[in-house]
């Protein structure tokens, strides 16, 4: 087993660091899967243990690394899966302001470690300083790999472009103080509606004129829970009730500068937030629906 990769440019290092710090905000533990063409950060729900991942982030290695060597476990298991504390990894990147190069490798010290060797130019001379971080990792045996495979999700009934994440997060944060669950609704007409029912109030925020990337209607909304508002046809509205705290947590990803963010909803079952950067980094969050 061998892994060695080098980043030479400060802008990919910075972007990589933003991704890592975002992941560390979402979860304490994560799994780093190293494959031939991609790096994956995978987070499972901490409460339910090995279950389908709730966060799936894929990073094409060629965009970030100038050197990339990987030798897997054996002929049939060519990837490496490492369990690590995402906070440790994120903190190793904090010291980086003005970095010349970053080398990442798998080492065996007292325990298996992901070692980061960071080269920082000195402000006073032409020499460089070197910073080494050893992050203890747990190598995941291949028997357990299936726990971290890409979740198979049903085809969404609708995929709608999200409004500004910052704005969305402020609204969710306010709603969260009043209710623990939020109903996410998206209509084929390009509306995204967030709705809560609290003890004393009902609040709904609607975002209009959003791009609908995909709609697979009509949807069966025959149960009494749906109170269609306005004059929109209820068969064109896809909805899912989710935990407001989880949704707010995932909206923390607003630090990553994104190209597109999409919200896909499987009617009453799943909300998927997917964001894609200009460098083809793809981050997906899966928030399962709450059904009574």
């Amino acid at each position: 087993m061998k892994f060695r990769a080098v980043m030479n440019n400060s802008s990919p290092i910075r972007e990589f660091s933003t991704i890592v710090s975002t992941i560390s905000k979402l979860s304490k533990e994560c799994v780093l899967r190293i494959a031939d063409d991609m790096l994956y950060f995978i987070v499972s729900d901490e409460n339910t243990g090995p279950a389908p991942p709730v966060l799936w982030c894929e990073i094409p290695q060629s965009v970030f690394f100038s050197e990339y060597q990987l030798v897997g476990m054996d002929e049939t298991h060519q990837d490496i899966y490492l369990g690590l504390n995402s906070g440790n990894l994120a903190r190793s990147f904090v010291s980086l302001k003005n970095v010349k190069s970053l080398k990442m490798k798998l080492t065996k010290k007292q325990c298996p470690c992901l070692t980061l060797e960071i080269e920082v130019p000195s402000t006073t001379s032409h020499q460089t300083r070197q910073i080494v971080h050893d992050i203890p990792v747990a190598v995941v045996p291949w028997k357990n790999w299936p726990d971290f495979y890409e979740p198979r999700v049903p085809d969404p009934d609708i995929s709608i472009e999200l409004p500004s994440l910052k704005q969305l997060r402020t609204t969710i944060d306010r709603m969260r103080t009043m209710a623990s669950e939020v109903m996410v609704r998206a209509s084929a007409g390009g509306q995204l509606i967030l709705q809560i029912r609290a003890d004393m109030a009902k609040v709904s925020t609607r975002f209009k004129d959003l791009n609908v990337a995909h709609f697979d209607g009509p949807v069966d909304n025959s149960d009494p829970e749906t109170d269609s508002q306005g004059n929109e046809d209820s068969s064109e509205i896809v909805q899912c009730r989710v935990d407001a705290k989880k949704l707010a947590l995932f909206l923390n990803v607003d630090h990553i500068s994104t190209n597109t963010t999409l919200c896909s909803i499987v009617h009453k079952r799943l909300v998927t937030l997917c964001l894609q950067t200009d460098d083809n980094v793809k981050l997906q969050c899966f928030i399962s629906g709450i059904v009574y």
Binding site: S164, V203, T205, F207, K208
Partner: peptide, 12 residues
């Protein structure tokens, strides 16, 4: 500043 958003609240 954003015209495409609106919030309705019903407070008992």
């Amino acid at each position: 500043s954003f015209r495409n958003v609106m919030t309705d609240c019903e407070i008992w």
